[in-house]
Structures are given as C-alpha cells and as structure tokens.
C-alpha cells in the first residue's frame, strides 16, 4: 500500500487530470476483454507498460514488482484449467484445449492487471475520490471510502510494528508459530481500530461534527483536449490492431 501510494504521488503523470488516466486504463481494460487475447492482450500489456515506464517514468523494477503480486492466483488458477478430468475413469490429465485456455486467460489477466496497476500507480487516491464525487457518487460513500483508506494505513502501520515485535520474540519461527502469531495480531487489530474510531469520533464531536467531513481540495486544471484525444486515439489504435492482427 505504501509503495502504491508513494509512486502515485511522485510520478510524472501525478498532476495530470485523473480523467485522462482513467480513460486510458479503463479504455485498454475494456479493449482487453473484448478483443481476442492473442495478440490483443499482448498489445494492451505493451502499450500500458510503455505508458507507465516511458510517460509516467515509473521505476521498471517497481512496475514489475507490482505486476508480480497476483502471480500466485494466476499460476494456481491456470494450472487447474490446463487439466481435464475424464468423467468415466476419473483420471486427471493435461489436455491441449485446457492448456490453450490457461495460456490465453493468463495473458489476458496479466494485461488487465497491468491496466489497473497503471491507474493505481499514477493516480493519487484523493484524485480518484474527487473524480467519483464529480460522477455523482453519494458523498457519504466517498467519505467512508476515504476513512477506510486512512484507517487501513494506520492499521498496516500497527500490524507492521506488531510483526516486528513478534519476530523479535521468535514468534514467526516455523509455520505453526507463524500461524499463531498472525492470528493473535489479527485479533488485536480490530479493538485497536475501533478505539481509534472512538477517539476520532470524540474529537470530531468536540468540533461540531454534523456528518460531513470537509476536506480542502487542491486546484485542478481542466482535462486537456489534446490529452483526451491522444488517450482515445491510443485506445482506438490498440483495439483496431487487436482485431485486425
């Protein structure tokens, strides 16, 4: 979470209007699920990686690090798809059709994750919230989302300190101790989160809290026509190439 937050606030596209980035990521995400995965997904992956590394100037290492996070599910899910069960003998074997489905689905999923990663790594959460409020999402929902995000960062910090303290006492030595330590830590976090909420509530009530949290927004320039045109042109070009190639 820290890595995503840090990169979102320090890349070369941070100051750009969030709509431009949402259109690029969303457009390529839509293209990715509509066009055939070969070569469509490969084109989407290449385009969004070029935008992330070449335009937003995200560090290559961090970009691939974020893309490696969902690999566990990708490998587990794909390996299951590659297998086939014979209904008569219940024998499990590798099936060519299953292997093809697994490879194409994995490629499409990787391209889709890269679109999400681009959006998350180039757009600060405050900009996303502002865009959602402009899109007509009820304010209480946006406020709850922001508070959840804020509390999550606090809890991650608490969890990190907790893990350090447990490791210093060999609490994570071996799988059983690790499982026990993780559960103890998880059990301790909710009361602490609720305690934080209670303290914040007391503080806000003392300042005349009526239900709305006023947050100062930074000045934002309107989206540039050239930027929007370039984004839409890129998405159209990728979609056309994905269908024709």
């Amino acid at each position: 979470m820290y890595l995503v937050d840090r990169l979102a606030c320090t890349n070369r596209l941070t100051a750009r209007h969030p709509l431009e980035k949402v259109l690029l990521a969303g457009g390529l995400l839509g293209t990715n699920i509509v066009v055939p995965p070969w070569p469509g997904a490969l084109l989407v992956l290449g385009t969004i990686t070029a935008a992330a590394i070449g335009v937003a100037r995200l560090p290559l290492r961090e970009w691939f690090r974020v893309l490696s996070w969902p690999m566990g599910f990708l490998l587990a899910g794909s390996s299951v798809m590659a297998l086939a069960v014979d209904p008569a003998s219940a024998v499990v074997s590798v099936h060519p059709e299953g292997v093809q489905t697994a490879v194409l689905t994995s490629l499409r999923a990787l391209a889709a994750v890269s679109c999400l990663a681009f959006l998350a790594l180039t757009t600060p959460m405050a900009d996303m919230g502002w865009l959602l409020s402009r899109a007509g999402i009820p304010l209480p929902l946006i406020e709850i989302s922001f508070l959840t995000y804020r509390f999550a960062i606090l809890l991650v910090e608490m969890a990190r300190h907790g893990v350090t303290a447990q490791k210093a006492r060999l609490g994570w030595h071996g799988p059983w101790r690790a499982a026990r330590a993780a559960h103890l830590l998880a059990a301790a976090l909710l009361p602490r989160a609720l305690e934080r909420a209670r303290r914040l509530e007391t503080g806000l009530t003392a300042r005349g809290f009526t239900g709305a949290l006023g947050v100062r927004q930074r000045d934002r320039l309107p989206p540039s026509s050239a930027g929007i045109a370039m984004v839409l042109g890129t998405v159209m070009a990728v979609a056309t190439a994905g269908v024709l190639l």
Partner: peptide
C-alpha cells in the same frame, strides 16, 4: 447516526488489512 461512519470505516479497514495479512 452520523458517527457510525467512523466505526464502519474502522471495520472496513480491518477487513482490508486482514486480507493483506497472509497466514501460512
């Protein structure tokens, strides 16, 4: 009950952090 917003957010954050806390 406007103040429930904070408790709800705390529970939401707890759910989010639990999902990041990997258990062997």
């Amino acid at each position: 009950r406007p103040s429930d917003k904070l408790t709800l957010a705390a529970v939401g954050a707890y759910t989010l952090v639990l999902s990041a806390l990997k258990v062997p």
